[in-house]
Amino acid sequence: MFFVGGQTHIKDYYDIIVIGGGPAGMSAALYAGRAGLSCLVIESNISGGQMNETDIIENYPGIDEIQGAVLAEKMKRHAEKFGAQFHTATVVEVDFSGQVKRVKLDDGNTISSEVVVIATGASHRKLNVPGERELSAKGVSYCATCDGHFFKGKTVALVGGGDTAMTEALYLSNIVEKVIVIHRRDKLRATKILQDRAFKKENIEFLWNTIVKEIRGNGKVESLLLENKKTGESFTLKVDGIFIAIGITPNTELFKGKVNLDSQGYILTDENMETNIKGVYAVGDVRSKRLRQVITAVADGAIAVTHAAENYFD
């Protein structure tokens, strides 16, 4: 498969700047284009966000099943069709103090806009155990689609019990010899259908009520020190790699002190997705809310931009 994303040169002012090119940001861009507003999406990697790390998406109504990366490309193309522009760069600073907002990028550009939509999403949460940082990229990974290939024919651990964890376990089970799921509870949080599939796989094993105490190895991951929470018993497990999928943490470092956040660092909004700062919206995984899925992300984007179009542009 070949993704043919391209970039066009950018201007220094847009009606709406969207920070982050995941599904929420791309939906915002689509709605902006259709409202006749100029819109720039700033994405630090490849448009699509966490969809790109999702092997198969099969809970988006109307689409039985699609590769996450393909849906990402379709959404980008769709937004571009209605005039949205995409630019690859990392935002280093935002200024929301005036009516005109300013966004500074790592490539030296500074862009202004009337409205900013924050769609920076979330990153993988870390275990915070000894060895994790030292052996990061030496067998510790947070992205199965990125790094799964390096463990062909090997045994890996997968920590977590949610939808992402099971999706990754299933993806890895097609590449590696054996996946050992380590979960701190006695049942999974993942959607039933994903659980069923994982239980059916012969090369996926489960260690229940178990937590990782330490990741060990000399230059590369060799074993894990685990603890059974029920019995209190500690034991080691030999593995060649460990994939960590224990949830996410919001990408809100840039916005601390600029917009209101909840106690976990997610951005607080009203029902129109607007933050406490007029003209600044937050959509998708970065927002304080209950359900974080592609479908709720795209809904957020639509709501935010429709509100912005009605209230800040004539």
Partner: peptide
């Protein structure tokens, strides 16, 4: 170069860093 996670960046034959870093 003991690549087991990507992107893995090697500069002048030595691993410099692993991961997506900003320009500066």
């Amino acid at each position: 170069h003991q690549v087991s996670a990507v992107p893995h960046i090697v500069i002048n034959d030595e691993t410099a860093f692993v991961g997506a870093y900003p320009e500066d």
